[in-house]
Protein backbone atom coordinates (compact mmCIF):
# COMPACT_ATOMS: atom_id res chain seq x y z
CA UNK A 1 0.00 0.00 0.00
CA UNK A 2 1.28 3.42 -0.90
CA UNK A 3 2.33 5.52 2.07
CA UNK A 4 0.63 8.88 1.74
CA UNK A 5 2.04 10.14 5.04
CA UNK A 6 -1.27 9.85 6.86
CA UNK A 7 -3.74 7.18 7.85
CA UNK A 8 -7.46 7.09 7.84
CA UNK A 9 -9.04 7.93 11.16
CA UNK A 10 -10.94 5.16 12.87
CA UNK A 11 -14.62 5.51 12.27
CA UNK A 12 -16.37 7.41 15.03
CA UNK A 13 -19.79 6.22 14.00
CA UNK A 14 -21.95 5.22 16.94
CA UNK A 15 -24.70 2.75 16.39
CA UNK A 16 -27.26 3.76 18.97
CA UNK A 17 -28.91 0.36 18.73
CA UNK A 18 -25.80 -1.31 20.06
CA UNK A 19 -24.61 0.99 22.81
CA UNK A 20 -25.23 0.38 26.48
CA UNK A 21 -27.20 3.31 27.84
CA UNK A 22 -28.00 1.78 31.21
CA UNK A 23 -25.94 4.39 33.03
CA UNK A 24 -27.69 7.16 31.13
CA UNK A 25 -31.05 5.80 32.17
CA UNK A 26 -29.88 5.46 35.74
CA UNK A 27 -28.75 9.08 35.63
CA UNK A 28 -32.16 10.22 34.44
CA UNK A 29 -33.68 8.32 37.31
CA UNK A 30 -31.39 9.86 39.94
CA UNK A 31 -31.26 13.38 38.51
CA UNK A 32 -34.27 13.87 36.25
CA UNK A 33 -33.30 17.54 35.92
CA UNK A 34 -30.67 16.46 33.38
CA UNK A 35 -33.41 16.51 30.77
CA UNK A 36 -33.48 20.26 31.14
CA UNK A 37 -29.83 20.64 30.04
CA UNK A 38 -29.61 22.95 27.05
CA UNK A 39 -25.91 22.32 26.50
CA UNK A 40 -24.96 25.93 27.05
CA UNK A 41 -21.52 24.86 28.24
CA UNK A 42 -21.36 27.10 31.32
CA UNK A 43 -20.27 24.06 33.31
CA UNK A 44 -17.44 23.39 30.85
CA UNK A 45 -16.32 27.00 30.95
CA UNK A 46 -15.84 27.15 34.71
CA UNK A 47 -14.60 23.61 35.34
CA UNK A 48 -11.53 23.39 37.58
CA UNK A 49 -10.73 19.93 36.28
CA UNK A 50 -11.03 20.76 32.57
CA UNK A 51 -7.28 21.30 32.08
CA UNK A 52 -6.56 18.12 34.03
CA UNK A 53 -8.83 15.54 32.46
CA UNK A 54 -10.92 17.37 29.87
CA UNK A 55 -13.81 17.24 32.28
CA UNK A 56 -17.02 18.88 31.18
CA UNK A 57 -20.44 18.01 32.51
CA UNK A 58 -21.99 18.93 29.19
CA UNK A 59 -19.76 16.43 27.41
CA UNK A 60 -20.38 13.81 30.08
CA UNK A 61 -24.13 13.98 29.54
CA UNK A 62 -23.60 13.89 25.80
CA UNK A 63 -21.24 10.94 26.01
CA UNK A 64 -23.54 8.96 28.26
CA UNK A 65 -26.41 9.31 25.85
CA UNK A 66 -24.16 7.80 23.17
CA UNK A 67 -22.75 5.10 25.39
CA UNK A 68 -19.21 6.51 25.31
CA UNK A 69 -16.96 5.79 28.30
CA UNK A 70 -16.85 8.74 30.70
CA UNK A 71 -14.36 7.39 33.21
CA UNK A 72 -11.32 9.36 31.95
CA UNK A 73 -13.20 12.66 32.09
CA UNK A 74 -14.63 12.10 35.56
CA UNK A 75 -11.30 11.05 37.03
CA UNK A 76 -10.15 14.65 37.35
CA UNK A 77 -13.34 16.11 38.87
CA UNK A 78 -12.68 17.72 42.25
CA UNK A 79 -16.36 18.14 43.15
CA UNK A 80 -15.74 21.84 43.72
CA UNK A 81 -19.30 22.59 42.71
CA UNK A 82 -18.69 25.47 40.32
CA UNK A 83 -20.69 23.78 37.56
CA UNK A 84 -23.69 23.51 39.88
CA UNK A 85 -23.42 27.17 40.76
CA UNK A 86 -23.37 28.44 37.21
CA UNK A 87 -25.91 26.09 35.68
CA UNK A 88 -28.72 28.29 34.33
CA UNK A 89 -31.09 25.32 34.39
CA UNK A 90 -30.45 24.55 38.05
CA UNK A 91 -29.19 21.02 37.50
CA UNK A 92 -27.49 19.51 40.53
CA UNK A 93 -24.40 18.55 38.54
CA UNK A 94 -22.38 17.71 41.61
CA UNK A 95 -24.85 15.06 42.68
CA UNK A 96 -25.00 13.92 39.08
CA UNK A 97 -21.24 13.29 39.04
CA UNK A 98 -21.31 11.53 42.40
CA UNK A 99 -24.17 9.29 41.27
CA UNK A 100 -22.38 8.45 38.01
CA UNK A 101 -19.27 7.46 39.91
CA UNK A 102 -21.35 5.39 42.24
CA UNK A 103 -23.35 3.47 39.65
CA UNK A 104 -20.63 3.21 37.02
CA UNK A 105 -20.01 -0.31 35.81
CA UNK A 106 -16.82 -1.29 34.10
CA UNK A 107 -17.69 -2.45 30.62
CA UNK A 108 -15.87 -5.11 28.66
CA UNK A 109 -14.88 -4.52 25.05
CA UNK A 110 -16.03 -0.96 24.62
Amino acid sequence: MTDFGFTRAKSSTINLDNVDTSLFRKMLEVEPDVRRCMECGSCSAVCTAAPLSGMSVRKVIHALERGVDIAPMLSGCMLCGKCTMVCPRGINTRHLILSLERYYKKKENV
Partner: peptide
Amino acid sequence: YALGKDYSA
Protein backbone atom coordinates in the same frame (compact mmCIF):
# COMPACT_ATOMS: atom_id res chain seq x y z
CA TYR B 1 -17.74 4.46 44.44
CA ALA B 2 -17.11 2.35 41.36
CA LEU B 3 -15.06 5.12 39.78
CA GLY B 4 -12.01 6.45 41.56
CA LYS B 5 -10.16 9.71 41.09
CA ASP B 6 -6.76 10.36 39.64
CA TYR B 7 -5.08 13.63 40.48
CA SER B 8 -1.54 12.46 39.76
CA ALA B 9 -1.22 14.90 36.84
